[in-house]
Design a binder for these strands. Sequence first.
DNA 1: GGAACATGGCTTCCATGGAAGACAATATAG
DNA 2: CTATATTGTCTTCCATGGAAGCCATGTTCC
Lengths: 195, 195
Amino acid sequence: MEQHTEPSAERSAEQSAAHPPDHVARIQAAWRRERPDLDVAPQGVIGRLHRVATLLTHELCAVYARYDLGEGEFDVLAALRRAGAPYERAPGELAAHTMVTTGAVTKRIDRLERAGLVTRRAAAEDRRGRVVALTDAGRELIDRAFTDHIRNEHRLLAALAPAEAAQLETLLTGWLARLEPAAAPPPSPPPPTAR
Amino acid sequence: MEQHTEPSAERSAEQSAAHPPDHVARIQAAWRRERPDLDVAPQGVIGRLHRVATLLTHELCAVYARYDLGEGEFDVLAALRRAGAPYERAPGELAAHTMVTTGAVTKRIDRLERAGLVTRRAAAEDRRGRVVALTDAGRELIDRAFTDHIRNEHRLLAALAPAEAAQLETLLTGWLARLEPAAAPPPSPPPPTAR
DNA sequence: GGAACATGGCTTCCATGGAAGACAATATAG
DNA sequence: CTATATTGTCTTCCATGGAAGCCATGTTCC
């Protein structure tokens, strides 16, 4: 982000015709005017990343909704499905895999169980444990939903040229690798994510 | 919290030693095993983007918390601050600028008003309208918090080389430009974002 | 064996935001 | 100039998830 800002006009931004300054650029311009003492360049990356992530999540959820699933439910079903037959996991594992607290998982399972998509039963060896399993209906649903989901991701990514997508993946992978350890809380190393 | 990836598993992916497969790579591997009919490549980008965004948000919120602010409150204060003196905006504008519903803005303003950081008064011309203004305390707080916030963003972005950051910004800007219009709801064009 | 501590799941309470509608005030049609 | 539509804000209700603590079970160590 190169730019002078200076009081007065702040639409001068970078490009001219093809790029009307986007929302993030406008915010940066305002900050440069109000707080010329700060270098707000990082917002160019972090702000847009945040925005893209929000838009993508919104688009993704639209597909989940077709199957009457929220993001959380989809994540749990997906984690079970990807575990492979017999499509079972302990609640604690699901919490780890989907990056939420166990309390949140309990509620997600409650909803999925009520919808007949998963079942809960006692664990064989450890009587504290439980086993959550996909029902046939659940398996069937997540298979259809996931197929649709991937189609949707392809659509969203189609806005980028293959080379751009590859570049982006490389950059994000690298950043993530350096960010994850830092964000790891004391006890367990770094927790997983979902989807 | 180690992570095996299920029976067999194919870590073959791209890299070898230096890169232990990250969480997203493990998820992809599992899907390739379970659903070889699908091309899950987009997850490499979308999944990591989601993860990076989540981590960043978490780190950012840690700074807001130092000032006893939630993300929503920070966004509102920042929007008011960057409006420039006299640091006023209508609730509707704030909703547009921060990308949330007006209902959410009402509640954020409630909290900020209770904390003595903003005031609400009737608008001069339109008696339906209201004007939200930063108090001196609010102005003082957001100036300190924002300074700290930007320092934090610099720290987070430091994990990338300048050239990488620039590349990333370019890619995200382009993607965003092609994503925003698509996501724009019928009535108003595309709404703004925040921070 | 038994006491202290750890673990796994769940419950309770709380915080936040969306959706939809209530209301008051303003703009527009006829 | 009224009747209708629209706007701007707020209210209510609901959904989701985090934090922290409960309870039953397991593990460790003496």
